[in-house]
Amino acid sequence: MQTTWHLHVVSFIGFLSLLRLFYPLLKWFTTRFLLTNPRRLKRYGSWAMVTGATDGIGRAFAHELAKHGLNLILVSRNPSKLASVSNNFRQEFPQIKIKIIPFDFSSEGGYEAIEEGIKGVEVGILINNVGITYPRAMFFHEVDQLTWTKILRVNLEATTWVTRSLIGPMLHRRRGAIVNISSGAAVVVPSHPLYAIYAATKAYVDKLSRSLHVEYKHFGIDVQCQVPLYVATRMVSEVADIDKPSFFVPSPEVYAKAAVEQIGIGSQCSPFWAHSLQWFLVGLLPENLIDTWRLSIGLRRRSLS
């Protein structure tokens, strides 16, 4: 009898362990096929704000939101690229309104420009996409102060500040959605050697988002952390030698389509199906093996830079 009881306990623990391993895939399947309804985006409001909106994932996010009929506030540091992107969007989506806010998140302060730009606009969806990483693989002691200061400002301070600025009006209206972009470097793998500060800032984004989700979900505000792995963007090409989409590496457009479908569904997700599969596979491996593998990748990239 005692042996049978022990077997039940061991079996139950084994079941929980398997469930934990399969959780990313189960979560992706459930949200992708059972919960998605793009029409629900309009319930948050008619305006969406996207930071880092002129390149890569940010531009693709903005384009996908425009396809759903949302008006856009585009924020990026390059005024000429902002003008070009907004003009292209206006030609493709003449029915929507577009505002642009040139702003360099790596500079110190000056957030009043964003406050002025969103004044009088009821932003229903915020996509905190802007982010930067190291120019090359480096040990922690090799990262100069200017580089790590910019990373902290863009990845950590900007996300915090913009979220703080918009969550108040959302709270007043009792509706809104905030999507903060983290990284598989902070969530999926146990470490990201030679990019430590970048990974740490993205871990902050994950914990901030999931905590705010719990704080504000009862007020009608959906805060979500999205966890992409590699996407074929310019930033990724500079640090990972990836210059085109593949089975596991989607284009920004493919990623954004999946990402927009997941807005408001849960506190954390990895929207692209192959990323969820990778997350599952990584979960099967011992952490020390992953650490060794990631370190070898970092050292190889450092030797090539």
Rank of each mutant, 00 (worst) to 15 (best):
P245Q: 00
L285H: 10
V227R: 06
V143R: 07
T31H: 14
V154Y: 00
S17T: 13
D241S: 10
P250D: 00
I181C: 07
G52K: 01
V179K: 02
V187M: 00
A274Q: 15
H68E: 11
G220M: 08
L146C: 14
F272H: 11
N180V: 07
T233S: 02
G124R: 06
G45Y: 06
P286L: 12
F280G: 08
Y198P: 07
R136L: 04
F61G: 04
T147C: 06
F272P: 06
S183P: 10
T133K: 08
K257I: 03
P94A: 00
L126S: 04
S296D: 09
A177K: 02
L289F: 11
F272E: 06
I221K: 13
S183T: 05
L304T: 14
S183Y: 04
L41I: 02
G117F: 01
S182P: 04
I132E: 02
W273K: 02
I178L: 01
F272Q: 03
T160N: 13
S106A: 14
D144M: 09
V214Y: 12
K257L: 11
N128Y: 01
R234H: 12
K119H: 15
G120F: 07
T30D: 10
I242E: 10
L277G: 03
R90P: 12
D206T: 14
N180Q: 10
G283C: 07
T292Q: 15
G69K: 02
S246W: 06
G283P: 09
T54F: 03
N155H: 08
S106Y: 05
I290L: 09
E215T: 11
L212K: 08
E108M: 11
E238F: 09
S84T: 12
R153N: 10
E116A: 15
V231I: 00
S209L: 02
G283R: 07
E92R: 10
V121Y: 03
G176V: 09
M170S: 10
N71W: 05
K81G: 06
R175F: 04
R174S: 14
A62D: 00
R294F: 15
A256Y: 01
P245N: 03
S46Y: 09
I98F: 09
G131L: 05
P135M: 00
P228W: 01
S211K: 00
R90A: 12
V254C: 09
Y216D: 01
L166G: 00
A83I: 03
S303L: 13
L304A: 13
I73Y: 04
T133L: 10
P252E: 05
L156E: 04
F219D: 13
A53R: 05
H275V: 09
F280E: 07
A113Q: 14
H141T: 10
Y111R: 01
N78Q: 10
V239T: 15
A48F: 01
I297N: 05
